[in-house]
Design a protein around this nucleic acid. Structure first.
Lengths: 195, 195
DNA sequence: GTCTATAGGTAGATAGAC
DNA sequence: GTCTATCTACCTATAGAC
């Protein structure tokens, strides 16, 4: 009975699994995957490197887990943010705000999703790329709903917006504009009329 | 006779320093600084790892040299591109085209400038950041010349444009739009009026 | 200028004690 | 679940022969 519940919850005890994920996200974000050692991550949570392998099969597996958790979080946040908005433009604005909040002040998971993907050398890489593409589908649809015209124009707009947002960690300063102000500033500069 | 020509063509003698720079740029671009070993770079030019140290003091020094060369090239290209344009908008367009051409089809140096800077752990890092900021000053001035108004609006526009451009290697496909078409597409989506 | 050989260190991962 | 100990492999960098 008790055991059954534990199985259903998937990861019942072992709190350090989550601590390891957090530490890995932080380290991968700060120094990159190749610049981070298992010993670094282990010491952040107060255990020895060998003990990580009780929770994760390999270093790659750890990166994949961080990546999947990052996708899960940002997808959830952005999906939730757009339901309360009424017009297509407001929905896009809400999505941009949520996306920027997550990658600028939401933690390290999102930045790992954004930056460390190209480094993964693993058969499962494709699955991660697919997951990220599925996330970006949200923006693809929001932009299509703007009704600005051709397919190619929609692609260009998507690349413009996503690029500007995903690059923002490179210059963002928490003393300056807030993620929300940045999102609004970007959107105001963009021509979203149908002509 | 044949042998002499082969030597002249492939390795202009002694100038393996340039070959090493090229190989390092390619490797750093593809696998990142931490994901590249001196053996990788050496084998690309047909020498052994230890021999690199005749040309460069250290691996960091090699990255710095790639970075400086990258800055030098893109600054030169963009500076040249804007002199033939007449209006502020055309100058910005010319700069964007040159920038995108260099990072998308110009080689690996520019991409190293863009992506590998945060990883450098060296006192000389500041010098490189300054160099990149000086390069970006070109765009800062071009945008100011548009006369779109407030300082903050100019910053937002700069971040929007630079972010979209610098992110483009993540999705660029040489079978699709050309760098020039991408630049024009981006600019057309942006409101550059003074109101 | 490039080689060989190697120093000295750190990486990811495993085995078995507790 | 975490430890210690260790394996194997690879890393940057140096020294000296050629």
């Amino acid at each position: 009975m008790l055991q059954k519940k534990a199985i259903l919850n998937a990861q019942p005890r072992s709190d350090n699994r989550l601590n390891l994920l957090d530490a890995a996200a932080l380290r991968f974000c700060a120094r990159g995957y190749d610049g981070t050692s298992m010993r670094d991550i282990a010491s952040d949570v107060g255990i020895k490197a060998g003990s990580i392998y009780y929770h994760f099969e390999s270093k790659t597996e750890l990166l994949i887990a961080v990546h999947e958790e990052g996708i899960r979080r940002i997808t959830s946040l952005v999906s939730t943010a757009i339901v309360t908005a009424n017009t297509p433009r407001d929905r896009l604005k809400a999505a941009m705000i949520a996306h920027l909040q997550e990658i600028l002040s939401g933690g390290d998971y999102a930045q790992v999703v954004i930056c460390e993907l190209p480094r993964i050398d693993d058969p499962r890489r494709r699955r991660l790329i697919d997951a990220r593409n599925e996330y970006e589908l949200i923006f693809r649809n929001l932009i299509k709903d703007l009704g600005i015209g051709s397919e190619i124009k929609c692609s260009q707009l998507r690349f413009l917006i996503m690029g500007a947002m995903n690059w923002s960690p490179m210059w963002f300063n928490s003393d300056g504009q807030s993620p929300e102000e940045i999102a609004i500033g970007f959107l105001d500069l963009i021509t979203v009329t149908t002509d």
